[in-house]
């Protein structure tokens, strides 16, 4: 090998090596391990006695009438539905909808004030998860001490117990208030990168505030919005920490990721069923990949990654 070729190869190794190791070690290997474990009978003893599909049989059962010859078992079906509801509402209402409202309003405010509001929205992200979860526990506390109940008592309404009556709403709100800040940041910077002259031109052309948002701002946010959608969908699908911290292993909020966690690693909840948890996780990975690819296709994100999409004069 000539010396220049050798240098090329060693440079490639030097520059790509760490990232490749990271990818393989932290992303690819765990997926393979998960795949293997999900087809075993591994439990607390971390011993593999046989390779089997029995973990998947806990999730689905053969059925003559069902579409693919399999029927979802009720606990799994329930987890799937709860995940879908939780991800859908957190994503649409908070991570996208609320993030957009926050970005639009704080960029419309004069410089300092807008920055202040954005900083306030970032606070929960800066505080430790446990502290944030404790705050929510206080907010939804069913007794008179709960913030929500204190506010309600002023208006004369009786105390409520959100954790019991609207558990999904509690976890959607808790995740949403923290999740909106990421979208807010990305959308804010996207709005700021719109050339100011476009706003002036639209105003002079006769556009009002809503028309400016519709014709100038939203088209410029198309790519950031698709990015946030894909990214946050994947993040929400596997997120469980706030659900666990606020709700505990409650049946009412037992989403797929919670099910996987409580069956394997969570303390005092019948955990240690590693193979079972791995099977659930495998399904989550498949769902994540399928939906990400679908959104990728729908939003034409390939283009986003190949060239910068925010046009600046």
């Amino acid at each position: 090998m000539s010396s220049s070729k050798f240098r090329q190869a060693s440079n490639a190794l030097l520059f790509l090596g760490p990232a490749s190791l990271f990818l393989i070690g932290l992303l690819l290997v765990p997926i393979i391990v998960d795949l293997v474990v999900s087809f075993t009978d591994m439990n607390q003893t971390i011993k593999v006695d046989e390779f089997t599909t029995k973990q998947f049989r806990k999730l689905v059962k053969p059925s003559e009438e069902a579409w693919f010859g399999f029927e979802l078992r009720s606990s799994f079906y329930r987890a799937l539905m709860l995940s879908a509801i939780y991800v859908f509402f957190t994503l649409t209402i908070f991570n996208i909808g609320f993030a957009l409202v926050l970005a639009l309003t704080t960029t419309a405010l004069p410089g300092r004030l807008g920055g202040l509001f954005r900083a306030i929205w970032l606070l929960p992200r800066m505080s430790p998860s446990v502290v944030y979860a404790l705050l929510w526990l206080w907010v939804v506390d069913p007794t008179d001490r709960g913030l929500l109940n204190q506010i309600l008592s002023i208006t004369g309404l009786g105390p409520i117990n959100p954790k019991l009556d609207a558990p999904i709403m509690v976890i959607v709100c808790a995740n949403g208030f923290i999740g909106a800040s990421m979208g807010m940041l990305i959308l804010t910077s996207a709005i700021r990168s719109i050339p100011e002259h476009l706003f002036h031109a639209a105003r002079a052309d006769g556009a009002g505030g809503l028309s400016v948002i519709r014709h100038i701002v939203l088209p410029a946010l198309r790519w950031p919005l698709s990015y946030i959608t894909v990214f946050q969908f994947l993040a929400l699908l596997v997120s469980f920490e706030y659900i666990f911290l606020i709700m505990g292993p409650a049946r009412s909020t037992m989403t797929m990721s919670m099910l996987s966690y409580t069956k394997t690693l969570a303390p005092d909840t019948g955990s240690g069923q590693y193979a079972y948890g791995a099977a659930i996780t495998l399904i989550l990975i498949v769902i994540g990949m399928a939906v990400a690819l679908l959104l990728w296709r729908l939003t034409n994100m390939k283009q986003l990654l190949t060239q910068p999409r925010i046009e600046v004069q």
Binding site: P195, H197, L198, H200, A202, A204, D205, H215, R222, Q313
Partner: peptide, 25 residues
């Protein structure tokens, strides 16, 4: 009517849509 140094054409609209934009209002 203003013409800007950067032209400030709306990047997501066609030429015709750009020219028609002020007539929307």
């Amino acid at each position: 009517g203003i013409v800007f140094q950067s032209y400030a054409l709306y990047p997501n609209m066609s030429v015709l849509q750009n020219i028609m934009f002020p007539l929307r209002f």
